[in-house]
Design a protein around this nucleic acid. Structure first.
Length: 421
RNA sequence: GUGAGUGUAGCUCAGUUUGGAUAGAGCACUGGAUUGUGGCUCCAGUGGCCGAGGGUUCAAGUCCCUCCACUCACCCCA
């Protein structure tokens, strides 16, 4: 038997409703906040991801689905969305379209990782990016948007974590050196991984789960105390606006993000009940990336949320909207089926959700099928009904039924009324 | 890439410790009790390369080896 390949999943009909729900609510809210959708290809020139995400990052060094096409060009299935959006923004000169741009995207991403709870090789993100605004107001707005989204979805138990990673021009290098200095002094207490990180990427020590490393970090210098005046002012203003908007958040000094391009504001949203991977959204500011890709200097900020994780966190929490009531048309015998075949078309044209039997079965079986299919109303059309041009309308919940005239338009409006009742 | 756990019916799982005859249960499915009235109840039935391959043995679901898959965790991220 051929099976779906490792780390990818079918979204079965029983799960698809939750997906549609999250997608619909997100889309609506993003549009309300003035975002427009941008759809980019799911594969790109490999160089795009290497240059934007960073050569040394885990994503680029070991997680990308990279392959040569038939002419030998190196292509990569996108591991995240921001790179493509930036590429499209520059390529189509969207910066010339207005004072600023608000874009969102949605779709599958690919990373070659060992699957575990809340992590798969193909996963789905909804992301939003704003180009052309350096003001802290938009940073705060992005967090407010996330807060609104999760509360609209009915997700309780979410935490917004906030930090600043400074700027690559001034504060970050300085802080990095300080941290490195500190880590070296405590080198012996660090785990093997972190001893290596200490040289390669000291910031990464921050989110090590090793107890010993964490206790060392408790004494480590805090980046917020070493921000340059501009970055500090920016950060303080973001905080002030969040407080004014009454958005609950927590400063997390350990929050450093795994992609190289972030500047200043970095954030993450976590939820409970997800296993070890508890981040449902993450993002931050990336003020240099557009310029790096040949666009004009353009400040930008964005986030992405993980569909699978949001849905996982939502399981049992939110009240999904119920599907529209289903009508089952049970026809007994060849002649009745013929009649039903035409009648059901009328019902559908009137906008009703209806199915029928295509096989000759006993009424008992048909009612059972109606029940299994979740019908709330069943229309019974047999030889007797056909002869008298009437049919039976059975309420599957109350187990009551009545006789009505066999007339498509009439039936449709009657059903409509019943469903609304 | 590393570590741990699990693979038996469509699903959830017994049976593996200590090898032994036609491999079980619940749920689901099909039929009947009930001629054209679903859910509840009762009765009957269908359904298994016991993850794959190799080995030990008179005998393997059970013991040994190899591989594969799934799950969780690490690394890291959404």
């Amino acid at each position: 038997m051929i099976k779906a390949i490792r780390g990818v999943k079918d979204i079965l009909p029983s799960e698809a409703r939750a997906w549609q729900y999250v997608e619909a609510i997100s889309r609506k809210l993003l549009e309300d906040y003035g975002f427009s959708e941008l759809r980019t290809p799911i594969f790109e020139d490999t160089a795009l991801f290497i240059r934007s995400i960073g050569e040394e990052t885990d994503i680029v060094s070991k997680e990308m689905y990279t392959f040569p096409d038939r002419k030998g060009h190196s292509l990569t299935l996108r591991p995240e969305g921001t790179a493509s959006v930036v590429r499209a923004f520059v390529e189509h000169k969207l910066y010339a379209q207005g004072p600023y741009q608000k874009l969102y995207y949605q779709g599958p991403m690919f990373r070659y990782e060992r699957p575990q709870a809340g992590r798969s090789r193909q996963f789905h993100q909804i992301g939003a990016e704003v180009f052309g605004l350096a003001e802290p107001d938009i940073d705060a707005e992005m967090l407010i948007l996330l807060n609104d989204l999760f509360s609209k979805l009915g997700l309780v138990d979410v935490n917004i974590l906030l930090n600043s990673v400074g700027c690559p021009e001034r504060c970050r290098p300085r802080y990095k050196r300080l941290l490195q200095e500190f880590l070296r002094q405590n080198f012996a207490s660090l785990c093997l991984d972190c001893q290596q990180r200490c040289e390669k990427n000291p910031l990464r020590v921050m989110d090590c789960k090793n107890e010993s490393c964490q206790s060392v970090l408790a004494q480590a210098p805090v980046i917020l105390e070493y921000l340059c005046p501009d970055c500090l002012r920016h950060h303080q203003e973001v905080e002030r606006l969040l407080k004014v908007a009454d958005i609950p958040y927590r400063i997390n000094h350990r929050l450093v993000r795994g992609l190289d391009y972030y500047t200043r504001t970095a954030f993450e949203v976590t939820a409970s009940g997800l296993g070890a991977q508890n981040a449902i959204a993450g993002g931050g500011r990336y003020d240099r990336l557009v310029e790096d890709f040949g666009g004009p200097p353009t400040p930008a900020i964005g986030f992405a949320l993980g569909m699978e994780r949001v849905i996982l966190a939502l399981a049992g929490q939110a009240s999904m909207p119920k599907p529209r009531p289903l009508i089952y048309l049970a026809a007994l015998g060849q002649a009745a089926r013929q009649e039903a075949f035409l009648l059901i078309r009328t019902l559908r044209q009137k906008g009703l959700r209806a199915i029928m039997n295509y096989q000759d079965r006993s009424l008992k079986t048909l009612l059972k099928q109606a029940d299994q299919m979740g019908a709330s109303l069943t229309i019974i059309l047999g030889e007797n009904e056909l002869a008298s041009r009437r049919l039976l309308l059975r309420d599957m919940v109350r187990s009551t039924q009545e006789e009505i005239a066999l007339d498509g338009d009439n039936i449709a409006s009657l059903l409509e009324a019943k469903i609304l009742a």
